[in-house]
Nucleic acid binder design. Structure first.
Lengths: 193, 193
DNA sequence: GCTAATATGGAACGATCACTCCATTTTGGG
DNA sequence: CCCAAAATGGAGTGATCGTTCCATATTAGC
């Protein structure tokens, strides 16, 4: 759509405005008007560059999620602790509000199949990362056990994010770092149950 | 507001319709029109009985949350396993959709102080229950450790609920029942960290 | 510097929403 | 049976939303 230099520059300004509004006002208050006002741009310009409001929002969120990757090349050097710390960074770092928006989308997913599919993919990727790291740290354990423990770990981190959402004084990092990154005991419970 | 028999009956019909629409269509699609159409009632009748749409929705949600209580009189006889099972029932039982709506509200809470306060109270009550049960089961452990473990347990359950939201094939009950209800190892990690 | 492609702002559109207003009917205590 | 209070349906209100349309201005290849 954008072919002239001015157009590409405007596109960047709009994306920056979208990030700013999302961070400061949350998903619900991120209206087209709030974005275009912030960017100092008319609605016509916006729709000359984006197919829909959703497109701009997704572009920001995708970038935010990808940005918190401790090992972008997937070299297999990251530990489960690295991954927990990356998650803590995602939730408490500079763009913390985006993690809440991400969560908000996850909760509305059941209503929207498209969103549900995107969330499922992102979640699976994250669980796979934990799974791989845990396998490296505990090569002796059964793979099914490790996979399950990875699910439980990511779920706990997600749940702590929810908790943090309505109680800003909650010490997310402390709780996150106290989670169990050793699947051994989960293994014990599986045999028992 | 309602003083005649017909009015009270209409009130019940509206609440039943609200529950039905919430369950079948989710929070976002629960408009005033969808409620009144389902109840076979005009908007005027609705506002003769309820102050706002929110009032009806909250009445349904409060009931749903209260209904999944294993020990309503708080006699202190419930175990942590009872509480986990009650949570499983809340998420996978007949009114399962309500747990997703509950979660959806939790995620939008940061935007709305009133909702945030309600959610914080409900969450605290749940954590306290787990805390009390765990303390009964492990009277020897430090209270701070048990409190922290209760937080982690409820967070994990919440996270698994999110997971289930966008992947209906997820086996919530299995994962929930494999969570660690023994704070001992958490205690170990606290000393270490 | 000509010109077609692109960019721009903002009025206008149509849909949706929660809620109000009110003429009319129904209720039930005395 | 009376009649004030309560109940009722639904048209109407005003606000907000994403999106479209279009006249005008700017860009950049030639």
């Amino acid at each position: 759509m954008a072919r002239y230099r001015v157009g590409l520059a405007t596109r960047e300004r709009i994306l920056a405005a979208t990030l700013a509004v999302l961070s400061e006002q949350g998903l619900e208050s991120t209206t087209l008007k709030s974005i275009t006002d912030r960017a100092g741009v008319g609605a016509g310009s916006f729709y000359n560059l984006f197919a829909s409001k959703e497109e701009a929002v997704w572009e920001i969120l995708s970038n935010a999620i990808a940005a918190v990757d401790p090992d972008p090349q997937a070299l297999g050097s990251e530990t489960s602790t690295d991954l927990v710390n990356a998650f803590v960074q995602f939730v408490t770092g500079d763009d913390a509000v985006l993690s809440r928006i991400y969560l908000q989308l996850a909760s509305t997913a059941p209503t929207d199949d498209d969103i549900a599919a995107r969330m499922a993919r992102a979640q699976q990727r994250r669980v796979d990362r934990f799974h791989a790291a845990l396998s490296r740290e505990h090569p002796d354990l059964d793979d099914g056990v490790v996979a399950l423990h990875a699910e439980l770990l990511v779920a706990a981190l997600t749940g702590l994010t929810v908790r943090q959402g309505y109680d800003p004084s909650f010490d997310f990092a402390r709780h996150a770092r106290l989670l169990d990154t050793d699947p051994s005991r989960t293994a014990g419970r599986m045999e028992q149950g």
